[in-house]
Design a protein around this nucleic acid. Sequence first.
DNA 1: CTCATTTCTTGCCATTTGATAAGTGCTTTT
DNA 2: AAAAGCACTTATCAAATGGCAAGAAATGAG
Lengths: 193, 193
Amino acid sequence: MDKEPLRNYIQHNSPASRQIVETIAEYFEPCEFAKNDFFLKEGKVSTDYLFLTEGLMRAFSFDTEGNEVTTYFYPKNRMVFEAASFFTHANSAENIQAVTVCKGFTITFEKLNELFHSIPEFREFGRLMLVRGFVEFKQRTLALITKRAEERYKDLIKSNPEIFQYAQLKHIASYLGITDTSLSRLRKEFSKR
Amino acid sequence: MDKEPLRNYIQHNSPASRQIVETIAEYFEPCEFAKNDFFLKEGKVSTDYLFLTEGLMRAFSFDTEGNEVTTYFYPKNRMVFEAASFFTHANSAENIQAVTVCKGFTITFEKLNELFHSIPEFREFGRLMLVRGFVEFKQRTLALITKRAEERYKDLIKSNPEIFQYAQLKHIASYLGITDTSLSRLRKEFSKR
DNA sequence: CTCATTTCTTGCCATTTGATAAGTGCTTTT
DNA sequence: AAAAGCACTTATCAAATGGCAAGAAATGAG
């Protein structure tokens, strides 16, 4: 499988030279997921850091009443990891599952940490991945507070149309913070226009 | 001013030895804020990483209609920093302001980075601070989706009662994702019981 | 202390969203 | 092909929350 997308991604997000990026990429192993396979299961410790080259993944957990809530969608050409479990070795509160067939490259915590320790430029990459995830969550939280469901729906269609192509509507609904009934209403209104 | 709370905090959140912690703490400078002083202003690059020993701070930004939205409250004995701006040197989208008189210790990005590079154990600390902030935001986002305003209100009183002691209700309201009118109603219902 | 400003509360009504349940259509199983 | 299961839609009604405006209370300035 072609590691070029991975190398490009690292290159664009760290100050490392091309040669160092190539060395780093060597440590990643190819992997594949069938539709509905789990990359991470609730209650287990996350051991892998994944770069997704093909497909779509979804993170979800359960609220106090046992309802499934989609907490995130991971499009391709992005890193997929659950920071809390991966970096602190705590049991994960979340599941990460393949929505479609997925392909990518993984690296274990031990190897990644070795690289962070031996390659200062790569540490920047690790930090950036965390900061980015953080920023996205902040924006989402802000949108939940300040925007109407309709606007959040429009924003998601605009920013990640592929999600609507592959994910189930009830999963998208809980990601948007609404019920599937409400999402259905919104879709109806939009199809009228 | 007494640096002991800072040393304890670093000690509890990194694998560094006491001696190393003491060295690290030397790099932090004492600082104070009058009520309403800004630690960080929107549009500026955040240059400091702050450990708050006294007081309460608040992060806020504005939505598209120009309404102020409180995005976070920082209680004492915690690190205060805006990850996106501090670590990527981008202009901050947020403001961080002292709700009460505040005291603490700051370190600049350059010095902090020096420490991260020279003290591997301290890197764990930096990573943990990011991961923790991330986890908290995720939980808050989940609560916004799955819980009623009333429950979010109860949770906040339980976890951070000091916020209700010092912050304005309209700021707490926007943090909870409701209007000040609704918060007022909730308070009324609770005072009945 | 008094006045002005800001913050908070309250009442009224409108809107958004949720809960439930029935119905439609698609897919899978047997 | 019939039956069962699942995803999605739709209708109805109820509950939560917002918007607005007026008034009360607290705070700050002079």
